[in-house]
Nucleic acid binder design. Sequence first.
DNA 1: GGAAGATTGTTACGGCCATAACAGTCTTCT
DNA 2: AGAAGACTGTTATGGCCGTAACAATCTTCC
Lengths: 169, 169
Amino acid sequence: MSTLPADLLYGAYARERLATMPPPADAEAFALAYHLLQLASLLVTDLETRIHRPRGLTLAGFRLLFKLWLLGPTQPVRLAEISAMSRSAVTNAVNTLERGGLAERRPSPADRRAVVVVLTAAGETAVREAFAEQARREQEWFAALGEAEREQLTGLLTRILRARPADVP
Amino acid sequence: MSTLPADLLYGAYARERLATMPPPADAEAFALAYHLLQLASLLVTDLETRIHRPRGLTLAGFRLLFKLWLLGPTQPVRLAEISAMSRSAVTNAVNTLERGGLAERRPSPADRRAVVVVLTAAGETAVREAFAEQARREQEWFAALGEAEREQLTGLLTRILRARPADVP
DNA sequence: GGAAGATTGTTACGGCCATAACAGTCTTCT
DNA sequence: AGAAGACTGTTATGGCCGTAACAATCTTCC
């Protein structure tokens, strides 16, 4: 018998306390949001410190590299849209990647305001290696669930994302 | 018929591309991690900008206030454990709360190194009001799922958290 | 008792991110 | 054509966070 981590003990306690409170308190909605954010936070910290930082990347930098790897040359404004980042955050991340020789900016032929970000050869090597490591680590995280359960979980998350409130960017 | 948000279009495309790659690429694990992190990121940004910032709080500050509300006077080291934050982040957040008159530090009677953080009356009012608003907003986010589905989702997330890799703090 | 090690909270530092303001460029509409 | 408005990328500013180092205190073990 193993002891529960402190965050799960707290989560279970908070859920019980909220169950005794009147609306708008909602113990189930709280538990869902709490565990969702807790898992995401632990996963992000784990991937960042264990895989990407030791390679000289940040998680945000890796995610940009990965998008460039799949999509090819892409404008910063499009990277910001699909990444839920601001344009200035993309500017900063691309600066870091460019300093490390992993990506480059090129002027856009069609629009003189625009820029296109492209992966360098070193960037492609870096993203391949980091991606392989991240994929293995994700499998470790999700090993507690069977394949059908993992797909079920992804489906539920996707439905929430599709139905996001109208005023969410 | 409505167009899919850019992040979901990208997510679906990436999943398809990964399905054609050899291991360790794992399209299903990628899709799960991607949608999990995307949803958490959107939810955090939404709660922070829509609810807590307008009230002069940060999301981290609110989460600390909420824990103090449920747990009563608590040591920073314990707040750090259950929040997946570093002790220095707790120090900073408590400084901000203290400046705003929402919480206070008191010396611990038993241990002269230690400090206990307590909610002020203003802090309790603030946490009550912010909590009610956040609960309502969370319900809007999760309205796409039925009650049974929400519990199912929480259960799957909790199982992953319980089985977290051994070397995760 | 007392020394070695562990723990607590804080500080200094650097990194990431969002907001707002800006200049340059494109688009639209008359 | 030309003026008004929209869009793109960058910069400046401020906030949060983690790591590492530190002083003070507690605990352990001889």
